[in-house]
């Protein structure tokens, strides 16, 4: 079937998902008093979540396309958490429990970094096991039987865990409370070291596309009927490169943004004062 035929087919768009997203957005607008930028951020994050989970993009994963899954995960793990953190309403920040937790982030950043890294590496091991269980072949040396516990985990739960891991990982950098953020340069180092870890895995994914194991598993991955016809090798390489290049570029843009703000000489107090002022307007 053609690409446009696939995307314009209403059956491939999740209607309950669309309704849920609308309800969430409207509730956000009604119950919280937030700045325009925050409303935009929340709306965008909902659009992205819908794109990742309820649009034809999500259904493409049923064709076994690694690159589409990668795109989903980049959206859910790397982009949406930033938007959600930016959209966090000030009224929620009044809760003293939340404030004390957010302030502790500065001291626990190593743990949060590790959590992000473990979520990524562990998630890949988990997915490889899941795929191995579904298809019966070894994926990158990982074997799992059809009745293994990995198949019992609902996909909704794993997606939710992804978003939560992303939120926690990003806290030291994008904490809504400035007092809970690391110093600007430390934030850049935090992101860069995560980038190295992610790139190493991306490297592995790309260069393993050629290896013998991938070639043997071809009959299982029938991509002939999918609207994005590509060979297994191309799909795998695309997946790895998505991790690497767009992921790196995203982190570089975030780092540059951090640095530009820092160079203006804004101190932490100044920016929170400015934020409080604007929200009062």
């Amino acid at each position: 079937m053609s690409f446009t035929g696939y995307f314009f087919n209403i059956d491939n768009w999740s209607v309950p998902g669309f309704l849920a997203v609308m309800v969430l957005f409207v509730s956000y607008l009604i119950f919280f008093d937030t700045r325009k930028l925050q409303k935009l951020a929340f709306g965008l994050s909902l659009i992205l979540i819908y794109l990742a989970l309820g649009s034809p993009l999500a259904k493409l994963t049923s064709f076994g396309l690694h690159s589409i899954v990668m795109l989903q995960h980049i959206i859910l793990l790397m982009i949406t958490p930033i938007l959600l953190l930016k959209a966090l309403p000030n009224s929620l920040l009044q809760s003293s429990w939340l404030v004390s937790v957010l302030n502790k982030v500065k001291n626990t950043y190593l743990l949060l970094w590790l959590l992000g890294a473990v979520a990524m590496w562990g998630g890949h091991f988990f997915s490889a096991a899941l795929l191995s269980a579904k298809t019966g072949t070894a994926i990158c040396g990982i074997n799992a039987t059809a009745g293994s516990w990995v198949t019992a985990m609902p996909s909704g739960l794993s997606f939710a865990l992804l978003v939560i891991a992303g939120l926690l990982f990003y806290l030291p950098v994008f904490n809504p409370l400035d007092s809970g953020r690391l110093a600007p340069l430390k934030r850049v180092v935090y992101l860069f070291t995560a980038c190295v870890s992610c790139s190493t895995l991306g490297l592995y994914v790309v260069f393993s596309a050629n290896s013998a194991a991938a070639v043997e598993a071809i009959p299982i991955f029938n991509t002939l009927r999918n609207p994005l016809p590509m060979s297994l090798r191309n799909d795998q390489e695309l997946a790895g490169m998505l991790m690497w290049v767009p992921g790196c570029i995203l982190y570089v843009m975030e780092s540059v943004n951090i640095l530009l703000k820092w160079y203006d000489g804004e101190t932490a107090e100044e920016s929170t004062v400015a934020a409080v002022k604007i929200s009062k307007d």
Binding site: C195, C248, I249, Y251, V252, S255, V256, L259, L260, Y263
Partner: peptide, 13 residues
């Protein structure tokens, strides 16, 4: 700030 921040971008990329 643009010269300084773009330096970091170059180093990362």
């Amino acid at each position: 700030k643009f010269i300084a921040a773009s330096t970091v971008a170059i180093a990362l990329l």
